[in-house]
């Protein structure tokens, strides 16, 4: 490649072509992301909803929607906090095993010593659940674990339980099922990303470590993990943002009400309750803005703490 040199001050700037090429992204971003975001923030200061076919508002109400969000409800708690807690808990339940398993698989698959055959096949298989729409996946579990569903039939027939168990009505099982589904859907994706990260590490580092007599644990903690950190943080943050936005799996599995006793109600399901029936843009906007702030804080926090080391 030859670099064009122009004599004197009159250099031809090729930068403008660069701007031209990235322009489409910014235009699309501005129209479909930035503008709606601004609108959401704007709406959050208004009383704006539908009562049947009557549209109420928009009337400016200042911080009223935010105050309402931090007011205790009839059950005596602040819904926002409870549902944030639920969301984080449900995410952790799925994400911890997801990262452990994905990391193990990534190390197995990339290990030159193990040299597992049929990698392509396994990679496809573990990624497969991600291709199914989350709501369809959830619907499937809903049918599988219903009181007259195949799982119950199987367990009764095998004599494990003597009467059908209400999997979808009990907190422990509902939360476990949600975690299981999220795990199944995302561990393949995480595995592949981590594998890419590990493959990016210079193989000679592993080799020399082995020659120096370090065992697998030492290699993992002293070589793989530190060098994988940037990728690991990226995967963690995306998973966390995805977790905060958890919606379709619990929504479908619990018929939208986060059974039982609102213990599976996530923040986005809460948001959806405002939007579905009454198109309550004011309250929904306020929830979204808080969600945005929470996500931003979490991301910065994680990024900062992990990067420090």
């Amino acid at each position: 490649m030859s670099v064009k040199k122009v004599s004197g001050n009159k250099s031809v700037s090729y930068a403008r072509y660069g701007y031209l090429f990235i322009l489409p992204f910014f235009v699309v971003y501005a129209i479909f992301t930035l503008y709606p975001q601004m609108l959401t923030i704007y709406n959050s200061f208004f009383e704006y909803y539908r009562d049947g076919l009557t549209i109420v508002g928009p009337n400016f109400v200042g911080m009223k929607n935010y105050v309402a969000l931090f007011t205790k409800n009839s059950s005596g708690y602040i819904p926002l906090f409870k549902f944030l807690g639920n969301t984080v808990w449900l995410w952790l339940l799925g994400a911890v095993p997801q990262f452990v398993i994905a990391m193990m698989l990534a190390i197995f698959f990339t290990s030159t010593r193990l040299n597992i055959r049929g990698q392509q096949f396994f990679k496809t298989v573990i990624y497969m659940p991600n291709l199914i729409m989350a709501s369809a996946f959830s619907m499937l579990f809903f049918a599988l674990f219903s009181q007259v569903g195949p799982i119950n039939q199987l367990l009764v027939e095998m004599g494990v339980i003597d009467k059908a168990f209400n999997f979808l009505g009990v907190r422990v099982t509902v939360q476990s099922l949600i975690a299981l589904m999220n795990f199944l859907m995302w561990f393949g994706n995480t595995t592949i990303l981590l594998m890419a990260g590990i493959q990016g590490i210079d193989e000679s580092l592993f080799e020399s470590a082995r020659l120096d007599g370090s065992n697998a644990t030492q290699v993992f903690f002293n070589i793989t993990m530190p060098l994988l950190m940037p990728i690991f943080i990226y995967v963690l943050i995306t998973s966390m943002i995805g977790g905060i936005q958890m919606f379709d799996v619990p929504q479908v599995l619990t018929n939208g009400i986060g059974t039982p006793n609102n213990t599976s109600m996530t923040l986005i399901m809460y948001l959806n309750n405002f939007l579905g029936t009454s198109k309550n843009y004011g309250m929904a906007g306020a929830v979204s803005v808080l969600l945005f702030i929470i996500t931003a804080i979490l991301s910065t926090f994680v990024f900062k703490t992990i990067n420090k080391k």
């Binding site: 109420v56 409800n73 009505g169 907190r171 039982p260 006793n261 309750n273 405002f274 029936t277 009454s278």
Partner: peptide
Amino acid sequence: DGEVATREDAINNFKDFIKNKYPS
């Protein structure tokens, strides 16, 4: 189903649901 302690709790959950669905 035994996952909500009292009838009042269940009714409160219901009230919160309606409040979220219908601001009016």
